[in-house]
Amino acid sequence: MHSLKNNCLVYSSVFSAGLIFLSSCGNEAAKEDQTTIRYSIDTVSIDSKDEILFLQRDLYTSDYSEQDGMLYNLNDKTNHVEQINLNSLAIEKMIPFEREGPNGTGFWTSDLKSASDQRLFFGGERSGIYTLGGKLQQIFNWSDIDKEKGGILDEERVHYQVVNPNFPKQVFAIVVNDQTNSVSLRQLKTSDDFIQSYNIDPNENYKTYTLGDLTNYNNWDPYLYIKSTQDHIIVSHEFANDFYVLYPAKDSLVSISYQSSLFESKVKPTTEGDLINSTKDRKNALKSYRSQIAYGPFAYNNKNRHHVRLSASIIYGEKEREGYLLPEIESSTLYISIFDKNFNHILDSEIPELKKTGIPKYFIREGAIWLYLNLDDELNFIRIKF
């Protein structure tokens, strides 16, 4: 990324692509039009005001709030949330949260999400919605639900969670079954004390791309993404492009897949090497998968009323990175996929200016895609403006 100079370099580009057919719920629709999109790229820096921002997890436990224009980033070492003002491009304040007591978040947090109205959702040991003053307003206790009402089994674990402002008494999660190496989408309704289950992996992508011994916890599982957008929940996968959209109000789950002229619909798995016991062979397999294609989560562009998904083909170098499984990125090819508001696939195109980003944490703000960029341990963002 040395070719991007902070705050000053702007690319202006045009890309076009033939619209590709959509396969949704068994239906296929052919498209013939051409679409052209203009975009520019720049970078911005965040003023930390002498605070040391928590970047060790690459903004993994963070979320952007459209309601107030703030990025909320959890420092899980101190249990503070950094409130970063993206209007002024500066840290606003550090918000402390308790770990114990009636307002405690617990000692580990896997998810942090904006819950609207100056509230945050913590998913983890103690899942709930908290005010910015640190008060617990709504708790979601998965373990309280009886097995007869869809409760979590002993061999299952709640993996990733999300809430949707349209459904304040509900929480949604990807649940992993470690006995069957399967995943499902669950919906906890606290008002009914009931958990609904949905099949979001009929092709067994989770099992296919898990590296290691499938009979115990000694394995590396692929990324799964769960996103809350408008009035629905989207679940997608790191190594396959099929995805699932839940409309809670209708209790309707829609399965969508599509074909691209630029990359395969799913990664070709490898069986070479000792993938159960050898860390080296697992790393080589993971490198092989991501060199083919790796998909990111969905994001919704309110300004242009379309859904965006980034993906990349990533080549790793030799220099190891502390705290990472794989070495530094040597090069990558970044792609953007665009869908209309009803998830009809519009286009895929390469973004050739960005050659070493991989797929960092990203979100959409005022029509632009913001991609996380760490420059000398300072928080920056690459912006793709449409």
Results as ranks from 00 to 15, higher is better:
298 F>Q: 02
298 F>L: 02
298 F>N: 00
298 F>K: 03
298 F>D: 00
299 A>P: 05
299 A>M: 10
299 A>T: 12
299 A>C: 13
299 A>I: 14
300 Y>P: 00
300 Y>D: 02
300 Y>E: 02
300 Y>T: 09
300 Y>S: 04
301 N>A: 06
301 N>D: 15
302 N>G: 14
302 N>Y: 12
302 N>M: 13
303 K>S: 10
303 K>H: 07
303 K>V: 13
303 K>A: 11
303 K>P: 01
303 K>L: 10
304 N>W: 11
304 N>C: 09
304 N>A: 12
304 N>G: 10
305 R>W: 08
305 R>P: 08
305 R>C: 10
305 R>I: 10
306 H>S: 07
306 H>C: 14
307 H>R: 09
307 H>L: 13
308 V>C: 07
308 V>H: 05
309 R>Y: 01
309 R>F: 07
309 R>K: 12
309 R>G: 01
309 R>W: 06
310 L>I: 03
310 L>P: 04
310 L>A: 08
310 L>T: 10
311 S>V: 03
312 A>S: 15
312 A>V: 06
312 A>G: 03
312 A>T: 06
313 S>P: 00
313 S>C: 04
313 S>M: 07
313 S>N: 09
313 S>R: 10
313 S>I: 02
314 I>K: 02
314 I>S: 03
315 I>N: 11
315 I>Q: 10
315 I>E: 15
315 I>Y: 09
315 I>F: 13
315 I>V: 15
316 Y>F: 15
316 Y>I: 06
316 Y>P: 00
316 Y>V: 04
316 Y>W: 06
316 Y>G: 02
317 G>V: 12
317 G>N: 08
318 E>F: 11
318 E>N: 15
318 E>K: 13
319 K>R: 08
319 K>Q: 12
319 K>E: 15
321 R>P: 02
321 R>N: 01
321 R>D: 03
321 R>Q: 06
321 R>G: 01
322 E>Y: 14
322 E>W: 05
322 E>R: 12
323 G>V: 06
323 G>C: 11
323 G>D: 11
324 Y>F: 08
324 Y>W: 12
324 Y>R: 10
324 Y>T: 07
324 Y>I: 01
325 L>A: 13
325 L>Q: 02
325 L>K: 02
326 L>K: 02
326 L>W: 00
327 P>I: 07
327 P>L: 09
327 P>A: 09
327 P>F: 09
327 P>M: 08
328 E>C: 03
328 E>V: 03
328 E>D: 09
329 I>M: 09
329 I>D: 05
329 I>P: 04
330 E>V: 05
330 E>F: 13
330 E>C: 12
331 S>E: 15
331 S>D: 14
331 S>K: 15
331 S>V: 09
332 S>Q: 01
332 S>I: 01
333 T>G: 03
333 T>N: 07
333 T>M: 12
333 T>S: 14
334 L>V: 02
334 L>I: 04
334 L>Q: 00
334 L>C: 01
334 L>D: 00
335 Y>T: 14
335 Y>K: 12
335 Y>C: 06
336 I>S: 00
336 I>G: 01
336 I>D: 00
336 I>M: 02
336 I>T: 01
336 I>K: 03
337 S>C: 06
337 S>I: 08
337 S>F: 05
337 S>H: 04
338 I>K: 04
338 I>A: 04
338 I>R: 04
338 I>D: 05
338 I>S: 03
339 F>G: 11
339 F>P: 08
339 F>Y: 14
339 F>N: 13
340 D>I: 11
340 D>L: 03
340 D>F: 09
340 D>Y: 10
341 K>N: 13
